[in-house]
Design a protein around this nucleic acid. Structure first.
Length: 260
DNA sequence: ATGCCCGATTATATCGGA
């Protein structure tokens, strides 16, 4: 099955582009971030018409995640455990039933964290502590599972066109990288680097300053796989061409193919 | 050093994004 992640930067503004991409790419499952919509206003019908179940976890104006699936899904849960006072919609999970087995999929929109220092950066690091706990539990379950989405983390210098200019930003600084590595080092496989070591592959290009035309991007959308899921990894690709279309998101889709 | 661009909001400027 093919599972994609796509930060769409607003479902209302991105619906035509999303429908075009769904129609041609035909992923089995899509994890969406930044729907920027309450659940009641999410345009379910045109997506359901393409054969997808729609599960949303939205909020007004900002954030918001969703799962689209052409395969049966079960046990949908919303919100990252660990802080009942957290009102930001950044996490959704479901179990997808494939022909050859099930996989637990977690869609996430990790906080940006800028400016540093400040409460937004503190929130990012606290959120990543909670992510670690959920990741550890998924790992301990010894089942196929993945956590995918907009991590707002630049893992390594090759993951930015201008790494020196990014250094110190909340996406690329020691505390952020330590928190990222702590999660990965539980024993997760980062799917893109496991399949393609080539540099200059990015998933985000700023709308400003001609970033797309200069390929001045960063790779911040990631798939982390448990060992049982990594054993089934067939491919991982970035749909970079989507960035060059009419009215694009500033992110592009990234997807994995799993033998499930 | 700042803004550039873009989306959402009971908006016509401000905030958040990365």
């Amino acid at each position: 099955m093919r599972i994609a992640s796509f930060n769409i930067n607003g479902i209302k503004a991105r619906l035509p582009a999303l429908l075009d991409w769904l129609s041609e790419s035909k992923p089995d499952v899509v994890l969406l971030q930044e729907i920027k919509s309450i659940d009641e206003n999410f345009p379910r019908e045109p997506i359901e018409d393409l054969g997808y179940h729609v599960e949303t976890h939205g909020q007004k104006s900002f954030n918001g995640v969703a799962i689209l699936s052409r395969l049966p899904i079960e046990d949908v849960t919303r919100g990252l455990p660990g802080d009942p006072d957290d009102e930001q919609a950044r996490w959704i999970e479901a179990t997808v039933i494939g022909d050859e087995g099930a996989v637990r999929v977690c869609g996430l929109y990790l906080p940006n964290g800028n400016p540093v220092p400040g409460p937004k950066f503190d929130y990012k690091l606290a959120w990543m502590d909670r992510l670690f706990d959920r990741a550890q539990a998924l790992f301990d379950a010894e089942e196929p599972a993945l956590m995918a989405g907009d991590y707002n983390i630049i893992p390594a210098p090759d993951d930015a066109a201008r790494p020196k200019d990014w250094w110190g930003d909340a996406l690329y600084r020691p505390e952020s990288l330590a928190a990222w590595r702590r999660v990965v080092n539980i024993g997760f496989t980062e799917a893109f680097r496991a399949r393609d070591a080539a540099p200059m592959n990015y998933t985000f290009w700023d709308y400003q300053a001609g970033a797309w035309n200069k390929n001045d991007g960063i790779r911040i959308d990631h798939f982390l796989l448990t060992p049982a899921a990594a054993d089934r990894l067939v491919d991982c690709q970035i749909d970079r061409h989507v960035r060059g279309r009419e009215k694009p998101s500033d992110h592009v889709p990234i997807w994995v193919e799993l033998a499930l």
